[in-house]
Design a protein around this nucleic acid. Structure first.
Lengths: 227, 227
DNA sequence: ACCAATATTCAACACCTGTTGAATTGGACC
DNA sequence: GGTCCAATTCAACAGGTGTTGAATATTGGT
């Protein structure tokens, strides 16, 4: 008979696929493929479900990505804002090191977001742009304040432009997280695991000597993140 | 009659579409869209011809892109190698400034290649990777030599790792060319035209103070490129 | 035991992609 | 004036993309 032979596989699964699991899969695929090349079918495959299910939980691919951003940024912004409070009287180089550590903490597992910040900003605001800017502007503001306070406290040279210094600090940290582990082993004997921390440390040394009022003053001891 | 009604538009045009014109169009589209998103149809549209014509001159999209690289890199590598010759006894900061200027000269009109260098290296060698590495390795080598000579001449701190310093110098220059003009006007009163040179200058000041043996020594006067 | 809401899949749509083979034309040479 | 080659276009292929509407199981409430 040409009966529509009921396929067994539809309907809810025994264990629900909750949206957070979808976000995990999406993050992984965005990380590997980049924002544009990551396909919903690949994300669905990773999550072990049908592409259409993504549309049950999120209204579009873009919405899925925005949800990904909103899962990560607010906490990052909070940490960054706390660090920039003027009541924090620790030496400026130490606070800048903390900035790098916060970056490291929030971005190390998420090349997808890094790629977005790195690349998509360049192309101008294509839909996502304005929202990213909303997230990035306060972050930039916090770091900038640290530099400004550093000048006011006589630790940073007055000639240094806080905004440019912020740009250098933050941009390079993204490059260190992204590119250094891939490139350093190719060109030198350093193992990839150590590359990031070695790079961060060398970077802060150069940047700090570059902006410090007294370049010959030694760096304070920098706390390393717990492995 | 169902005669095949001879279409008028085939055959050679009055003015040939030479491959170089195709490369120009490809460069423009790669620049705007990025390597992956740039379509052959868009390139053909820009060049005013049919997509199939591209396959008459180049064997594939990848070959087209490689031809683009080969049009730019050799001259860049030559300039960079000449700059790194040990007979060049000018002060190290001035030579580093020349490195930035060479970058500026060769890359300022080609965001496509910059995007490639910035992004595609990260994803590892997917076909293009190895060739890019062949072009980039000698470039990195030249800059590194300048730092090493700087140490030998007592201008650069011995503690500085030449390879990491090279990484910082070169990477940041790409960011300055790409991101700074898009971002600075958003966050500060600087006009976009001045952003690149202002950024380059501030960057060299910080980097040089960061790596110099005597951080209090003034920078030599830096020649600006002719506008 | 029924019913409604929820979570899931299937199949298709329209469109875009790199690529190719055949058809066609213009110009150069003899 | 005929012949050949180089340059160009057309039409199609096979595959991938985001997205949607309908069909279908499962679960929880009453």
């Amino acid at each position: 008979m040409p009966s529509p032979l009921p396929s067994r596989s539809r309907g809810p699964k025994p264990t629900k696929v909750d949206p957070d699991h979808l976000l995990d899969a999406a993050q992984a695929v965005f990380a590997e493929e980049g924002l544009r090349a990551a396909s919903l079918r690949a994300i669905a495959r990773r999550a072990g479900c049908d592409p259409a299910l993504i549309y049950y939980h999120f209204s579009s691919k873009e919405a899925l990505f925005l949800a990904l951003l909103n899962r990560r940024f607010p906490a990052l912004l909070r940490d960054m804002a706390r660090l920039a409070e003027p009541t924090d009287l620790r030496p400026t180089p130490l606070r800048l090191w903390e900035v790098l550590l916060i970056y490291h903490r929030y971005f190390k597992d998420d090349p997808g977001i890094r790629a977005l910040i790195r690349g998509e900003i360049v192309r101008g605001a294509e839909g996502l742009g304005h929202l990213i800017e909303d997230q990035i502007r306060p972050m930039v503001g916090s770091i900038r304040q640290i530099f400004e306070q550093g000048i006011a406290r006589g630790e940073v040279r007055p000639g240094v432009q806080p905004l440019l210094a912020t740009f250098f600090l933050a941009k390079m940290q993204l490059e260190i997280l992204d590119v250094l582990p891939a490139v350093l082993p190719l060109l030198m004997e350093l193992p990839p695991e150590g590359a990031v921390l070695t790079g961060m440390r060398a970077w802060l040394e150069i940047l700090w000597r570059g902006v410090a009022l007294d370049a010959s003053a030694p760096l304070p001891t920098l706390p390393y993140p717990q492995a």
